[in-house]
Each structure stands twice: as structure tokens, then as C-alpha cells.
Amino acid sequence: MIATIADWLGAGSLVAGALLSLAAGVGVLRFPDALSRMHAATKPQVLGVLLLLLGIALRLRTPTDLGMILLVAVFQLSTAPVAAQMIGRAAYRSGRLDRGLLDADELAERGPGSGSAGPA
């Protein structure tokens, strides 16, 4: 009984994760500039992968595999923002953004040359 419920929940979260990934793919293709594409690529994508992992966990249900799935989830959650920040900074610095779509730019008001964290 519980096994069947877990199976169905697992199937549901697998499909939901795939749907979110699909929406992220549409966003990456459709959004007008690199920064908005980043939004599509990082947010629904992270939740999509997490949901897929939850689906795997619900269908496999062995403690050993759960540990490894948890590890993948932690890696995803901790590395995605770092990569996103580096890509976002590169996109901003190389001017890959549509100024007509910006309501405000407080980073430009800061002026060049003040401190920044890290290399690159």
C-alpha cells in the first residue's frame, strides 16, 4: 500500500520536474537577453532537478542510494548559485544586456574601480 503511494508520488514528481525543466528550456530560448535567460536557467532548473531526484528517491527507497541522491541535491544547491553569479557577472561586464528592458541600474551608479570580491 505504502509502496504504491510512494511509486505514484515518485512518478508525479518525476513528471513535474520534467515539466519545470521544459519550461526552463522555453525560457532559455525565448527570453530577450542573457540576464533573463539566466533566470530561466537557474530557477525552474534547480527545482526541476530537485523534483527529479525526489522522484528517484521515492521509487528506489534504499538507504544507500538515498545518501548518494542527497549528495547530488546538496551539490546542485551549493554550486548552482556560484556558477550563476559568475555567469551573471560576465554577462553584465561584457554588456550582454538590453538596457531598454532595465527599469533601474544601481550597479552602474556605483562607478568603476570600487572593491569587488574575488578574481575574474
Binding site: R37, L52, L53, G55
Partner: peptide, 26 residues
């Protein structure tokens, strides 16, 4: 630009993670 391609490649790799994982789950 290269940045757009990096985003797309990242996306593709995440889709691969999803596909491999989905196969394991099914």
C-alpha cells in the same frame, strides 16, 4: 555570445542529469 552558450550548455547538462536519473527511477 559565449555567455548565452554557457547558459545553454549548463541547461543541456542539467537535462542530462534529469534523463539519467529518470531512467534510473523508471
Amino acid at each position: 555570445s559565449l555567455v548565452d552558450r554557457v547558459i545553454a550548455a549548463d541547461m543541456l547538462l542539467a537535462t542530462m542529469v534529469g534523463a539519467v536519473g529518470a531512467e534510473a527511477a523508471v
